[in-house]
Amino acid sequence: MQIRIIVNGRPVEREIEADMRLLDLLRDGLHLTGTKEGCGEGECGACTVLLDGQAVNSCLILAAQVDGKEILTVEGISKGNTLHPIQQAFVEEGAVQCGFCTPGFIVSTYALLKSNPAPSDQEITSALTGNLCRCTGYVKIVDAVHHAAKLMHQKEGRSRRAL
C-alpha cells in the first residue's frame, strides 16, 4: 500500500507492506537509524518517536497506521549542525553513556518540554518512565532535562528580546 507522511518536516511517499512496523520504515526504509530497537515489544522506549506530537513506541505501530501523519525522530530535532538545547544538555550533563537509549530519551524529553517547559523531578521521571536506561541510573538524565528546560527558556528569552 501507498502512504504519505511527513518525516522530520519533509513529505515522504512510500509503497509499504501492510505488516511493516513504523520502526522498520524509519530504519530500513528511510535510513533514519537514530531510532533504535531494544525489545520490539514496547517496553524499553529506545524506538520512541513523535507521532503528531505524541511520544509513541514505533515498534508497536504499523507504518500503515501513520498515513497522513507527521513523524519526528531524533534526526529531526537538531537544526543543521547545531545541537538542540535538549541534546546539548544531555551531552553536558553526562546523561549519555552507551547512547543506545538516548534518542528515545531525547524525543520523550522534547515531547515533555513542549507541554511543560519547567517540569519538576516528579514530572520528569513520570514522563520518562517509558524509556529504560541500563547505564546511567537516570540521575544525570533528570539533571539534563532540567538543564535543557533552562537552556530553552534562556533561548526563548533571547529571541523574544531580539523581537
Binding site: 533504535k36 525522530t73 530535532i77 537538531s78 551531552v91 531525547i106
Partner: peptide, 12 residues
Amino acid sequence: DGYGLVTGKPMF
C-alpha cells in the same frame, strides 16, 4: 562520541 549519539548518527 556525545555529539553523534545525541543526534542519532549511524554509529551502532
